[in-house]
Each structure stands twice: as C-alpha cells, then as structure tokens.
Amino acid sequence: MADTHSGEIVAELEHVSRVYRMGSAEVRALDDFSFVFKRGEYWAVMGSSGSGKSTLLNILGCLDRPSEGQYRVRGTPTSQLDDDALSDVRSRELGFVFQSYNLIPQLDVLENILVPLFYQDDPPADGEQRARRLADRVGLGKRLEHRPTELSGGQQQRVAIARALVNDPALILADEATGNLDSQTALEILALFDELHAEGKTIVLVTHEPDVAARAERVLRLKDGKIESVYENRKVQA
C-alpha cells in the first residue's frame, strides 16, 4: 500500500466511500478507500471508466464530499466543512488542470491566471507579479492580453497550469490534462509536469493512457472503487 515516504502528508483518505443512489440501486463509486498522498509525489491515477477515478478526483478536489470516512487536506478534516470552508480549501490548497482547459472566455491570459487569488479572503499583495512570472514560465509572458479563443489548445493548457500554480497549492489535480492535445503538444505539457515534479510539487494526474501514466513517478490503479494495484515507475533517464 502507501509506501513509507518521509514527506509530509498532503492528502489523506481514511475509509472513504462515496455512494450514489440510482433509484433503488446503490452504486459505491469509492468503497472503503484509504490512501495517502505525500509532498513531492507525482501520481498517475488509472482505471477504466467507472472505476471511481473521477469520484476520487472530485473528493481530492473538495468538489464532492465522501459519504463515509474522512478526507484530510494537510491535516484539515473536510467532512465537517460547510460549502464556504470547502471553497476556501480549494482556493488555498488546490490547483486544477482540466482536460478541456476550462479557461474563462471573457478574461485575458493574465486575468485567467489570477482567478484563484480573486476568490481568496486574503489574497497576496504580489499576486499579479506572481501571475506574470508564471505566465513567463509557461512561455506565454508575451500574450498576457490575449483571450483564450486567440490561443492554441497547448497554449490554453499552459495558461491553465499557470492558473493552477498561482495560489501555490499543496496539491495539483490534473484530469486527463493531455486528453485534448495532439501527441507533440501533450509531450510538452507532460514535460512541464515533470518540471513541476522536479521542483517538489505534489501532482495527481488522472489518465486512462498508459503512455501518460508512465511519465508519473507512481501509478495508482483503481477498479470498482477499490485499489487494484500501486506501483512505482522506473525512471528512464533521457
């Protein structure tokens, strides 16, 4: 199971179940699921559709609450938190990267990167500088005024990654982040994730592509809401 990495625990699931009711039937999307994500780890979550990987991602992302069990983000139990407090956790501790980039169309690049800070109760004073630095870092420093529709898919995903980093999150959640990209661009994005991992960021990447999962440090395979297997990828030095 979870190995004995010496890092700080970032996210911890304790006997978590998520039960959906479909009429009289009961679907256990996650079933008594326990797992620990530690600082600096780079996980790929795999599994066929219906295996519970989306549900896991929603719970990790504080978008959904477990039906049973406890989920802690950096030690904070989330089951008892109300909607506002959960929103707080999302804006401070989490960064999201989606398959379809999910930039806000009426905002330009810089504004899109700044959105998570906008919703913090006490936003950092250097937010805009930080956003500019991040835009530079993902290679879009010269396109700050551009709207998402003026960017290619790869560029949009870079903006989304910058946005996911702007609040310096404890955990970066990526949902099929390369799913909409051609293979060349996908490789570029994955290289960016590698860089982030090298910097010590904690990343959970949900994917159904073995190639993508192979880039992660470790792989968590789900089946029917339970852990099927956990293994470490052997790093191939390029």
Binding site: D84, R90, F98, V115, Y119
Partner: peptide, 16 residues
C-alpha cells in the same frame, strides 16, 4: 454553467 463550475472549482464561494 461551465464557467460557474470552473469558478467554484477555483475557490469561488456561493456569494461570489
């Protein structure tokens, strides 16, 4: 709807 979902995911509270 999608924009609302994105904003909520990025930390927007209901009142925002």
């Amino acid at each position: 709807t999608r924009e609302i979902g994105i904003r909520r995911a990025l930390g927007a509270k209901r009142r925002h």
